[in-house]
Design a binder for these strands. Structure first.
Lengths: 360, 360
DNA sequence: ATTTAGCACTCAATTCTTGTGAGTGCTAAC
DNA sequence: GTTAGCACTCACAAGAATTGAGTGCTAAAT
C-alpha cells in the first residue's frame, strides 16, 4: 500500500489542484479550467499530458473518454498523505466553538450533542460522537431500589460519573430498608475498588451480597470492554444534500445505513488505531479503504478524544469522498482537543488513581 | 375539521379499497383494476362515477387527467377514522416481540433501543422512541465527586432510576472527604422528598448545602418539565427505500431533517394530546395535519407509554402517507403496552408515593 | 526533449419527435 | 341507477438529432 512512486512537483501540484477543484464542485475537472483558474504557466496540453501520466499511476480517472478527470481513491489518499495542507480554523471560529463549549461546561449531558452539532455545522458533513469509556472502571456507589415484588433496580455509579442500571430479581423478598442496608454495606467495602479487587473479595461475602457483587463485577467488566453504544450524530440531512447523494439511491441509503447501524459504526470507530492515512492523531478513512464496503462512497475523518489508556471516546465526521479534508481534519482535531480536556478534568480523580505519578 | 358528509356504503368501500391498493403500490389506482382484483359486482364505469364523486368531496385526486386516483390526505384521514379495521398482529409475532422484551427485562439500557428496532422492523417504517420523563421527580440520592481544583461532579439519582449529572464550581476548595460528608447530610435530609419539599427547606440549610440544594432543585424542576431529549430511532434507511423517497430529493431530506431535528420531533411528540385522528390511545398524524410543513410527505403513528400523570414517554413510527395504518397502529399500541408495563413495574415505588391509594 | 497549437474525434447530456396505452369522461342505451 | 362503448387525454418510453465540452494525437515551436 505504500506509494513507491513519488510524483514530480508539477504532478503533485496538479493533483492538488484537481482535488481542490473537484471538492468545490463534483464535476470532473478539465485541463483548460485548471490553467485558466489558477493561471498556470504551462498550457492545457501539458496539463493533459500530466493528467494522462497521473491516470496511469492510478491517481486520476475519467468518467468517460471525453470528460475531465476525477481523483480516484488512491488520488485522494495521496493528496491527504502528502499534498494537503491542513487548513487551520479561523481564529474567530475557534473562539466561537470554544465559547460554546465553555457555556456548556457544567451541563455534562450537553457535551456530546454539542460536539456533534459543532462538528456537523463546521465541517458541513455528518458527524459522529461516541461517549467515552473507561479502560479501568472503579466502583463508586451503589443504590438498590425495590420496585415490585422481588424486582430490584440496581444503580451503579462508577468513578468519573458513568452510571449503569440494571434490574435484578431477589431470591427472597426483602424490604426497602434492608435492601438499603445491603447497599450501604457493599458501598463501604467496595468504594474506590477496581473490578479485580472486588472479584478477589467475593469469597468473604454472605450469599446475598455475593450475588449482587457478582452482578456488579459483570457490569463493570462490561463497562470496560465494549465501546460505548451511546452514539450521537448530526448533520445527516446536510450530507444528503451533497450532489452525489441526491441522485444515487444506492449511495445515500448506504450512508444512512452506516450511520444507523451501530455495529458497523463501532467497528469502524474502533479501527481508529489502524494504519490508515492519518495526520497527527487524526485518522482519515477514504472510501472504506477497501475494507468497509458500505463506505465506498464516503470518507471518515476521526480521532480519539479523552485520556489515553484511561477513558476515551471517538469522534469524527462522515462526508463524501470529495470532502474538504484540510478543514475537516482541523475541526475534528480541534473538537477532540476541547472535549478531551473537558473529559480530562472531569475524570481527574480516577486518573490520579490509575497513574499516581500524574497527581497535582 | 369534522367530516359532515357521510359517505354512502359503496363510496366507503371504494375509498377503503383504493387506500388498500395504493398502500400496496404507490401507483394511482384505476377503476378496472379495482373491479377485477376485488370481484366487485358493479362495473368500472360505476366505479368511475363514484370516484368522481369522491374526488369532488376531496377524498381522492388525480395526478393527471388520464391517470387513476390517489387518496388525498383527507381521504386517508377518513379512512383511518371510519373505514380502517385495525389489523391485529399475528399471535406468533406478538409472542416473538414479547419474548424479545422479556429477554431484555433486566437490561434497562436495552429497553428503548429494542422498542425502537422492533417498531421499525415490524412496521417497515422508521421509528422514534423517547425516554420516559416523570411529572413528579423525587430525590433519591446524591453523589459529589471532586474532580480538579474546585470543580465538582454532581450526580443526582431520582426515584425511578433517572440520573442527572452536572458540574459545579465550589466557592472554596474542599477535600473529597468533606464533600462526601456534605452529600451524606443532604441525602439524610432530602431522601424521598419532592421538589417542593426541598425548596421549602432551603432556608434551614447552611450556605454551602443551600447552594447545592438550589442547584438540585433546578435540576429536578428541569427533569419534570421538558420532554426527554433522549431519543432513539431506527429504520430510517428502510424508510428511504420507499418509492416516494428514492426520487424526491426534497421529500426525503425533509424526513431526514425531521428525524434529526430533535426540537421539531419533540414538538410533534408532545402533540400526542391534540385531537388529531386517533384510534384508542394511538394517535395518527397524517401529512403533518397542515401544521407541520416538514411532515407533509409523511405520517406519524404514535402513542404515549408509561404511567399517565406520573412518568411517560412517547413512541411511534414515521412512514410515508401511504403507510399500512392498520398494522402500524397495532404495532405501536402493542409495543407501547409492553414498554408501559415494564416502566410501570420499574417505577412502582414512586407511583405508590404519588398515588398512595394504588399500593399493593 | 519539452511544450504547445491545432484539429479530429468521442460521447454524455439535452432536446425534440413520435408512438403507445392506460385510464378517464361522456353519452346513449339498458 | 347502471353500464357498454368510444373519443379523448396525457404521462411515459424509445428513438433521433443536436450540441459542446473535453480529450488524444500529431506536428511544429522552443
Amino acid at each position: 500500500m505504500t506509494e513507491a512512486n513519488e510524483l514530480t512537483p508539477r504532478q503533485g501540484l496538479l493533483l492538488k489542484l484537481i482535488v481542490r477543484e473537484h471538492v468545490e464542485s463534483p464535476l470532473p475537472v478539465a485541463s483548460r479550467t485548471l490553467v485558466e483558474k489558477y493561471n498556470l504557466d504551462f498550457s492545457p496540453a501539458t496539463v493533459r499530458n500530466e493528467m494522462a501520466a497521473l491516470e496511469t499511476l492510478g491517481y486520476l480517472s475519467q468518467p468517460h473518454t471525453s470528460a475531465g478527470r476525477v481523483p480516484t481513491e488512491a488520488g485522494f489518499r495521496y493528496f491527504v498523505a502528502r499534498l494537503m495542507e491542513e487548513q487551520a480554523l479561523p481564529m474567530a471560529e475557534q473562539r466561537r466553538i470554544a465559547h460554546q463549549f465553555h457555556q456548556a461546561r457544567d451541563h455534562i449531558g450537553a457535551w456530546l450533542p454539542l460536539a456533534s452539532s459543532v462538528l456537523a455545522q463546521t465541517s458541513g458533513a455528518a458527524s459522529v460522537v461516541t461517549a467515552p469509556r473507561t479502560m479501568q472502571s472503579v466502583y463508586q456507589h451503589l443504590e438498590l431500589i425495590l420496585t415490585h415484588g422481588r424486582a430490584v433496580l440496581l444503580i451503579l455509579v462508577l468513578q468519573g460519573g458513568m452510571v449503569e442500571q440494571q434490574m435484578l430479581a431477589l431470591a427472597e423478598p426483602m424490604t426497602q430498608t434492608s435492601l438499603r442496608e445491603t447497599a450501604d454495606r457493599l458501598n463501604q467495602i467496595f468504594a474506590g475498588l477496581k473490578v479485580a479487587d472486588i472479584e478477589s473479595r467475593l469469597g468473604e461475602l454472605p450469599s446475598l451480597e455475593a450475588d449482587i457483587a457478582r452482578l456488579i463485577v459483570s457490569i463493570m467488566h462490561n463497562a470496560e470492554g465494549m465501546p460505548s453504544d451511546e452514539i450521537y450524530q448530526h448533520g445527516l440531512s446536510e450530507l444528503l444534500q451533497e450532489p452525489e447523494f441526491v441522485e444515487g439511491e444506492v449511495a445515500s441509503t448506504a450512508v444512512v445505513r452506516v450511520l444507523e447501524e451501530r455495529s458497523l459504526l463501532q467497528a469502524v470507530l474502533s479501527e481508529t488505531l489502524t494504519p490508515a492515512v492519518g495526520v497527527g492523531s487524526v485518522r482519515v478513512l477514504i472510501g472504506g479503504e477497501g475494507r468497509w464496503d458500505e463506505l465506498r462512497t464516503c470518507s471518515i475523518v476521526l480521532a480519539r478524544y479523552g485520556v489515553m489508556d484511561y477513558a476515551t471516546g471517538a469522534l469524527g465526521v462522515v462526508g463524501p469522498i470529495r470532502m474538504p479534508y484540510g478543514r475537516a481534519i482541523s475541526v475534528v482535531r480541534f473538537v477532540a482537543n476541547i472535549l478531551g480536556e473537558m473529559v480530562y478534568e472531569m475524570y481527574q480523580p480516577g486518573i490520579r488513581e490509575v497513574f499516581p505519578e500524574s497527581g497535582e
